[in-house]
Lab assay of single mutants.
Amino acid sequence: TTTITTTNEEDARRIATEWKNKGYTVHVEKRGTTFRIEVR
């Protein structure tokens, strides 16, 4: 599992989409101002 964190919502969406397009399972969680993107 790879975890990526960013405070930028646009980055979070872009990163999540990129990983999904590669065939990975992506889970995005917002904690306060931080977005945690888990890639499996």
Rank of each mutant, 00 (worst) to 15 (best):
T1I: 15
T1P: 10
T1L: 13
T1S: 10
T1E: 07
T1W: 15
T1A: 10
T1V: 15
T1F: 14
T1R: 10
T2V: 14
T2M: 15
T2K: 13
T2E: 07
T2W: 15
T2Q: 11
T3L: 13
T3V: 15
T3M: 11
T3R: 06
T3I: 15
T3Y: 15
T3A: 06
T3E: 07
T3H: 08
T3Q: 06
T3N: 06
T3S: 07
I4N: 02
I4R: 03
I4W: 10
I4S: 02
I4D: 01
I4G: 01
I4T: 03
I4L: 08
I4Y: 14
I4P: 01
T5E: 13
T5M: 12
T5W: 15
T5Q: 07
T5N: 07
T5G: 03
T5F: 15
T5D: 07
T6H: 03
T6S: 06
T6L: 06
T6Y: 03
T6G: 03
T6V: 14
T6M: 05
T6Q: 02
T6F: 05
T7H: 10
T7A: 09
T7K: 09
T7M: 10
T7R: 08
T7N: 12
T7D: 15
T7L: 09
T7Q: 11
N8Y: 05
N8D: 10
N8P: 01
N8C: 11
N8H: 06
N8A: 04
N8W: 04
N8M: 05
N8G: 05
E9G: 07
E9A: 11
E9D: 05
E9I: 11
E9W: 15
E9V: 08
E9L: 11
E9K: 08
E9S: 08
E9C: 12
E9F: 12
E10S: 09
E10P: 06
E10L: 09
E10I: 09
E10F: 08
E10R: 09
E10W: 10
E10K: 09
E10H: 09
E10Y: 08
E10C: 10
D11Q: 08
D11T: 09
D11A: 09
D11F: 09
D11K: 06
D11H: 09
D11Y: 10
D11E: 13
A12V: 05
A12W: 04
A12F: 04
A12I: 03
A12D: 00
A12S: 04
A12C: 10
A12E: 00
A12P: 00
A12G: 02
A12L: 03
A12K: 01
R13Q: 11
R13E: 10
R13P: 01
R13L: 13
R13M: 13
R13D: 09
R13Y: 14
R14V: 06
R14P: 00
R14E: 05
R14F: 05
R14I: 07
R14G: 04
R14M: 07
R14Y: 05
I15D: 00
I15P: 00
I15G: 00
I15E: 02
I15F: 05
I15L: 07
I15Q: 03
I15C: 04
I15S: 02
I15V: 06
A16W: 06
A16G: 04
A16D: 01
A16N: 02
A16M: 08
A16C: 11
A16S: 07
A16Q: 05
A16R: 03
A16P: 00
A16L: 05
T17L: 13
T17M: 14
T17V: 10
T17A: 13
T17Y: 09
T17S: 12
T17R: 12
T17Q: 14
T17H: 10
E18W: 14
E18D: 08
E18S: 07
E18F: 15
E18G: 05
E18K: 08
E18I: 10
E18L: 11
E18Q: 08
E18A: 09
E18T: 06
E18H: 13
E18N: 07
W19K: 02
W19M: 07
W19R: 01
W19Y: 12
W19H: 04
W19T: 01
W19F: 10
W19E: 02
W19N: 02
K20M: 14
K20G: 07
K20V: 12
K20P: 01
K20Y: 10
K20W: 09
K20A: 12
K20R: 14
N21E: 12
N21H: 07
N21M: 11
N21L: 12
N21Y: 06
N21F: 06
N21I: 08
N21T: 08
N21S: 10
N21A: 11
N21P: 00
K22T: 03
K22Q: 08
K22H: 06
K22W: 06
K22I: 05
K22D: 04
K22F: 05
K22C: 09
G23W: 01
G23A: 02
G23K: 02
G23T: 01
G23N: 03
G23Y: 02
G23R: 02
G23S: 02
G23M: 02
G23P: 00
G23E: 02
Y24A: 04
Y24H: 05
Y24F: 11
Y24C: 05
Y24R: 03
Y24K: 03
Y24T: 01
Y24E: 01
Y24G: 02
Y24N: 02
Y24P: 00
T25H: 14
T25F: 12
T25S: 11
T25W: 13
T25N: 10
T25D: 14
T25E: 13
T25M: 12
T25V: 12
T25L: 12
V26P: 02
V26M: 01
V26L: 02
V26Y: 01
V26K: 00
V26H: 00
V26S: 01
V26F: 01
V26W: 00
H27E: 07
H27Y: 12
H27P: 00
H27A: 08
H27I: 13
H27W: 11
H27K: 11
H27F: 11
V28D: 00
V28T: 05
V28H: 01
V28A: 02
V28Y: 05
V28P: 00
V28R: 01
V28K: 01
V28F: 05
E29M: 09
E29R: 08
E29W: 11
E29P: 00
E29D: 07
E29V: 12
E29S: 11
E29G: 05
E29Y: 14
E29H: 10
E29N: 06
E29I: 13
K30P: 04
K30Q: 11
K30A: 07
K30F: 08
K30D: 05
K30Y: 07
K30S: 06
R31W: 13
R31V: 15
R31A: 10
R31F: 14
R31P: 02
R31Y: 13
R31S: 12
R31Q: 13
R31M: 13
R31G: 05
G32H: 04
G32A: 04
G32K: 04
G32I: 03
G32Y: 04
G32C: 05
G32Q: 04
T33N: 15
T33Q: 12
T33E: 15
T33P: 15
T33D: 15
T33K: 12
T33H: 12
T33A: 12
T33G: 14
T33C: 12
T34W: 11
T34C: 15
T34K: 10
T34L: 14
T34G: 09
T34D: 14
T34Y: 13
T34R: 09
T34A: 09
T34P: 00
T34E: 15
T34V: 14
T34I: 14
F35E: 01
F35I: 12
F35V: 06
F35N: 02
F35S: 03
F35C: 03
F35L: 05
F35H: 05
F35A: 02
F35M: 04
F35Q: 03
F35G: 01
F35Y: 14
F35D: 01
R36M: 15
R36K: 11
R36G: 03
R36S: 11
R36P: 01
R36H: 15
R36T: 14
I37P: 01
I37R: 00
I37V: 09
I37T: 01
I37A: 00
I37H: 00
I37M: 02
E38R: 08
E38H: 13
E38Y: 14
E38G: 03
E38I: 15
E38T: 15
E38Q: 09
V39K: 02
V39A: 04
V39E: 00
V39T: 03
V39P: 01
V39M: 05
V39N: 01
V39Q: 01
V39Y: 03
V39F: 04
V39D: 00
R40E: 09
R40D: 08
R40S: 15
